[in-house]
Design a protein around this nucleic acid. Sequence first.
DNA 1: ACCTGAACACCGTTCAAGT
DNA 2: ACCTGAACACCGTTCAAGT
Lengths: 224, 224
Amino acid sequence: MAPPTKRAIEPRIPLSRERVLLTAVAFADESGIGPLSMRKLGDALGVEAMSLYNHVANKSELLDGMVDLVFSEIDLPQGGADWKMAMRQRAVSARRALSRHPWAIGLMESRTSPGPATLRHHDAVIRRLREAGFSIEMAAHAFSVLDSYMYGFALHEASLPFETGQETAELAQTIMARFPVDAYPHLTELTVEHVLKPGYDYSNEYEFGLDLILDGLETVRDTT
Amino acid sequence: MAPPTKRAIEPRIPLSRERVLLTAVAFADESGIGPLSMRKLGDALGVEAMSLYNHVANKSELLDGMVDLVFSEIDLPQGGADWKMAMRQRAVSARRALSRHPWAIGLMESRTSPGPATLRHHDAVIRRLREAGFSIEMAAHAFSVLDSYMYGFALHEASLPFETGQETAELAQTIMARFPVDAYPHLTELTVEHVLKPGYDYSNEYEFGLDLILDGLETVRDTT
DNA sequence: ACCTGAACACCGTTCAAGT
DNA sequence: ACCTGAACACCGTTCAAGT
């Protein structure tokens, strides 16, 4: 029953590595990384799964490319006077990119082959720190603590996916309901007295920690 | 050719949820989380894959149980005078547990159903912070920044798996060889002048960031 | 109560064959 | 040069059948 002239009617855009990667990222954003298979990605591109192997070596290289695409969305630190502001902006941009593509965080653990966008980003961060007067050693420290915090927060955020206060309350209920009341009194207190209060927004935690680290780096910058 | 009396000779230990989880963790430590399948886990236990479903509901619940087992290996913060020391010790213990079981980090992103060991650990951390004079709000801040840093560092460490200086050098060579010389001058400088120097140990970065955050928390503890 | 065999609807990847 | 069909060795999970 399928129209045999489909191909002629709908002249297909030729496949390319870029189109494969962009479609894979869109698929993972929509459905998660688990359901992403070579066959379904082929479907999404109107092609058989096997055709993909003309543009990526295998699934592992596909995942590497997807992660690098996410990195390319993160703003590079700006040049200019205030290094803390520059670091702050790229950290905020990184968090935004990682919450648009939460599957990328879990992938980073197993990826050991950074792409060009990833390396360019790292290079720009180190450059900006050196310009701001950090020694090589201190730049390495600063880079490590900032990146660990950024990724760790994104990881945390992805695993506690409450978009709204309503969802937060429901999730907390579901988790707590599986255990005796007051089995975890301090966790319960913090949840009830703080997290579930109307004004609470988990995003604010990000800024708190970020500023704490940046202030700490400033005071420690000239000690080595 | 298989001896038909095998079963009689080797009386099998009965399966249990605990034995399933412990074997799954050992398997993932050895071979990674990717190769862990219900069939291979069955093999490792001398049982058909389908028998596992009598002890865990499905693979997702198996993974939840594995993550909770890793949490149970992390030391709870000690009571007593020095809250910074208590937080420091549990952070060091957490990093050790996560580097024994690097697959656990990537798993946390997708797990939204914390187990009893996870909740007990979180409860103990919040309790210790409250005892040290942190307000509920400040305890939430402190918890967030410390945990983000810990997980983020572990994530970083898992994705840059250099056990020895030799391996570090080789990995750096391999990565850099794929790109033009001096495409990333500042990254290259930091790598050559610092990371590849004999005395370098990435572990030291952990302590630097940890102490920076703990000192920051101390100065900020009484502001709210 | 627990374990199994067969079956179903999936995977990643290869390879020879098509255009 | 790029795409495909068939095949191989895998997956998670169900279900009726065994003990």
